[in-house]
Design a protein around this nucleic acid. Sequence first.
DNA 1: AACTTATCCAACCGCCGCTAC
DNA 2: AGTAGCGGCGGTTGGATAAGT
Length: 215
Amino acid sequence: MGGVAWTEEEDHMLKKCIEQYGEGKWHRVPLLAGLNRCRKSCRLRWLNYLRPNIKRGSFAEEEVEMIIELHKLLGNRWSLIAGRLPGRTANDVKNYWNCHLSKKLNAIEAENTQMNRNIDAIRPNQPRNIGPIDQESQQQESAISSLTFDAEGESHILEPQQENIYSCLDQQGIIHDLPMEFQYEGMISGVGSSTNQCDWDDLLLDMDMYNDFSS
DNA sequence: AACTTATCCAACCGCCGCTAC
DNA sequence: AGTAGCGGCGGTTGGATAAGT
């Protein structure tokens, strides 16, 4: 292994600790669990191995197709890709990609280059600090990071002060035009309104997938 | 059977952004 | 405003094992 392998006893101690105190506060976990491991090791072990509902074994064909499609859109953003594959961890996806798919991708990219089809990973210019902010910053933010995009031939503007990106889209009547498979928890009317990178990533991914699949 | 090479994947490392002080 | 501490992420490492010679 690339380090000291976890023993069954350590796994048991960590699991018991998480069950008792919950996830988070990883800096306290080694102490609470009585483990001689750093916070990062504990977190990684939990997320990649001990967490319930982790799917192990080889990837199904649909999962592989999904990974390839998502990688086209997101690049090496494994946690986001894994987030779309129930039971799979970012580490699993990354390892699978590096072992099985990277060569395949290179061939595809070479082909795309040949066909003059450049596909860039999407990363918004100003993905952060979208939540409510003070007036001065708000004006600055508004000037630099309003995002315009085109949906079904119409231009739309996302204001950075919008509490939730999806609620903004909702107000503009865009969300409900998307098929159900592109609507997910948190997307409608700001349910579970998070105001960070994930909103932008998820939004752009959903929009792009929608365009991809509908074209 | 012995050795070498390739593959897999768990674990580690360094960096980044956020938050609290 | 600066900074320390934290959680989280992607890249890399290296041991175990399978496959090949």
